[in-house]
Nucleic acid binder design. Structure first.
Lengths: 203, 203
DNA sequence: ACACCTCTAGAACGAACGCTCTACCCAATG
DNA sequence: CATTGGGTAGAGCGTTCGTTCTAGAGGTGT
């Protein structure tokens, strides 16, 4: 038993929340999947199911964040970087049998009405991811205003395409937004190497 | 009591599924919200909870479809039509207190692993909506290939922006994709009226 | 040796779940 | 008037839910 019980609980809960949502996932199921007992779960998480979920969502958020960061670093050009994201997401999604999509969306949608910690955790995750994309765009030379708007759009499109791909059990939606987002991003980039008279920028 | 009991059940179930997902919504809650009794629910839907959900999702799908159609008809220009969509979605979302987003996403995500009728119903809804957008783009003069790719992207972006807007309780994500999608769509349109030498099309 | 603390183990509780069942109301039909 | 059948009403079934509780295992410090 190399991994701690707590970690096993968090990892198992993250996977189950991603696949079945918050209400669809039982504490006992989490314990079983983590090869832990109910006592252990409540020992590490006295806050009960919600506390487990928050920890699991944070874990999933970080994992997805590094996946995003890695994909974005695959290319210097922001447009290519975005398609690298969609390619990676599509591959992982297919490999999981279309079940492991965004780690927070399901839980987020189920707890919309409430003002639970879960809600806040999901919102934080989305904003953090958007920040990653925005930074990439800024490094690519976009203006702060353009980068903000575009990053928000890219994240929304990724989220939506992930859902669409899962429901249709197809990589196509992700590849489509990959192509279109690349085109959109390119429309912002200052292409100094092109032939058609780039606008002169005052030094 | 002007509306039939069956209709009240479907409408109530649709609203609850939209807000709380499939597992989060109980049959008894549906009955109560619809001012019907459990007996009535099982009388009209011998298939039980899943049958109610399928009918409700179909209802929600149609309602969202007409909303989409109306928005798209607000402008002849496809780019403007898309921003009309995001504007309408943003307004409705705020008006509902950020709770009434896409009527099928929550249920779709919860039932991903299964091969239930619910899954299929959600997939049908998404594809139908994508068809509406594609037709609009085609009417706008885009090539079939471009229209297909773009329609898929637009729908994904709308779905994702809706979720992001709900989680952040803000219209901004929707407006951002509205702006960006308009720019993207415009990049495909043949602008005969612009000054910078439009490509000559053989008559 | 003992007490102490972290962690494991699972029985048990009340509440809520989806669903089945019987009983009843009431308008239409013979 | 009696009968039928669509629709209403809700008690109750077995199961599962999240949570609480007590009991014990295993290691550490004194």
């Amino acid at each position: 038993m190399q991994t701690s019980t707590r970690d096993r609980i968090v990892v198992a809960a993250a996977r189950l929340l991603q696949r079945q949502g918050y209400v669809g996932t039982g504490i006992k199921q989490i314990a079983q999947e983590a090869q832990a007992t109910l006592g252990s779960v409540y020992h590490f998480f006295p806050g009960g199911k919600e506390a487990v979920a928050v920890a699991a969502l944070r874990h999933g958020s970080e994992k997805f964040g590094t996946l995003l960061r890695e994909s974005l670093d695959e290319a210097d050009d922001p447009a290519e970087a975005v398609t690298a994201c969609t390619r990676r997401l599509a591959g992982d999604l297919r490999a999981s049998g279309w079940t492991d999509g965004c780690p927070v969306t399901a839980a987020a949608l189920e707890t919309l009405g409430t003002d639970s910690e879960i809600q806040r955790t999901c919102a934080e995750a989305l904003n953090e991811w958007e920040g990653l994309i925005r930074d990439k765009l800024l490094r690519g030379g976009l203006s702060p205003e353009d980068a903000r708007d575009l990053a928000s759009t890219v994240l929304s499109a990724l989220e939506g395409a992930e859902v669409t791909a899962q429901v249709n059990r197809s990589e196509e939606p992700l590849h489509a937004v990959g192509r279109q987002l690349a085109r959109l991003v390119r429309s912002y980039e200052v292409r100094v190497e092109t032939a058609w008279s780039p606008p002169l920028r005052p030094r």
